[in-house]
């Protein structure tokens, strides 16, 4: 195996410029190339760096295992390339094709250089396995980086969608946006109660304009939040009830009990101001 692997290294080293030119030609003509997402100069640079890295690694041996230390610089490069591409919107296939498209020029070069059929088959097999591994590695990395994006967005959503704002001295508003599930209710409730303690607010307006549907479960979550706020000594007003939601609530037989409900946040705010002893007058 030692002899064949040095052969591959030797061929790559000898024809590096040639291979690179062909490879880039191959890539720019392929359907998976995205000139809209990446310039040719960038592609050229990435290809050059990768080919260079592969040559170095191959020269040092170990063609069957890309997890070794010889391949570290190649892995780092692929990491960077895959992450960058995933972020700019390349599909995993398109990213993997970046590596796979090296096969064509490399194989034709091998065929031209090696005359003995047995040795050629061995070389092709080695090169093919190697490039497959590298290609799959890019897929794995781009998949992983996308998962990271999803996870981060999920957390962002949880935090972004539950702000508690102070409308007036002693009046808090909690504009809810998106579906209320148990996990979010927990976050919402904690945020609200914490803010009540911080500000000493006596009235909290829970605005559900942004809640798409209210079923029995969501209603129960809402009532829980209201009950917890009441235990802390703050009155709750539920506002932003859309006509369809009012109908659903009644049809489902949800009992909102003694909770004050208002159609709009504005109406709720007026009530809150009156309860906190403020008077509203329109200036001329």
């Amino acid at each position: 195996m030692k002899g064949t692997s040095s052969r591959l290294a030797e061929i790559i080293a000898k024809h590096e410029q040639d291979l690179l030119a062909q490879w880039i030609k191959e890539q720019t003509s392929a359907v998976t190339q995205r000139p809209d997402l990446m310039s040719e100069a960038e592609l050229r640079e990435q290809s050059r760096a990768l080919l260079n890295g592969i040559r170095n690694a191959v020269q040092r041996g170990r063609l069957d295992d890309i997890t070794g230390s010889e391949w570290e610089s190649v892995r780092e490069l692929l990491d960077e390339v895959s992450r960058g591409r995933a972020r700019t919107g390349f599909s995993p296939t398109e990213t993997a094709m970046f590596v796979f498209s090296l096969k064509q020029p490399l194989f034709s070069r091998l065929r031209a250089e090696i005359r003995e059929p047995e040795a050629l088959a061995d070389e092709l097999w080695t090169a093919s396995v190697l490039l497959d591994k590298l290609g799959l590695y890019t897929t794995e990395v781009s998949q992983k980086s996308r998962e990271e994006v999803i996870l981060r967005q999920q957390q962002d959503m949880l935090e972004l969608s539950t702000p508690v704002v102070e409308l007036w001295d002693g009046v808090l508003a909690l504009p809810l946006i998106g579906t209320l599930d148990s996990a979010r209710t927990q976050v919402v409730m904690e945020n609200l109660l914490q803010k009540i303690v911080q500000t000493g607010a006596g009235i909290a307006i829970v605005d559900i304009t942004g809640v798409p549907t209210v079923d029995t479960l969501v209603a129960q979550h809402l009532l829980k939040t209201v009950a917890a706020a009441r235990l802390m000594g703050a009155d709750c007003i539920i506002s932003g009830i859309r006509p369809q939601i009012a109908q659903t609530i009644v049809h489902l037989g949800v009992d909102l009990g003694t909770v004050t409900t208002k159609a709009t946040l504005a109406a709720a705010f007026v009530v809150a101001l009156e309860r906190s002893g403020a008077t509203i007058s329109k200036g001329r």
Partner: peptide, 8 residues
């Protein structure tokens, strides 16, 4: 707050 949530 924690007590309120627990009770609810």
């Amino acid at each position: 707050p924690a007590v309120a949530i627990t009770l609810v």
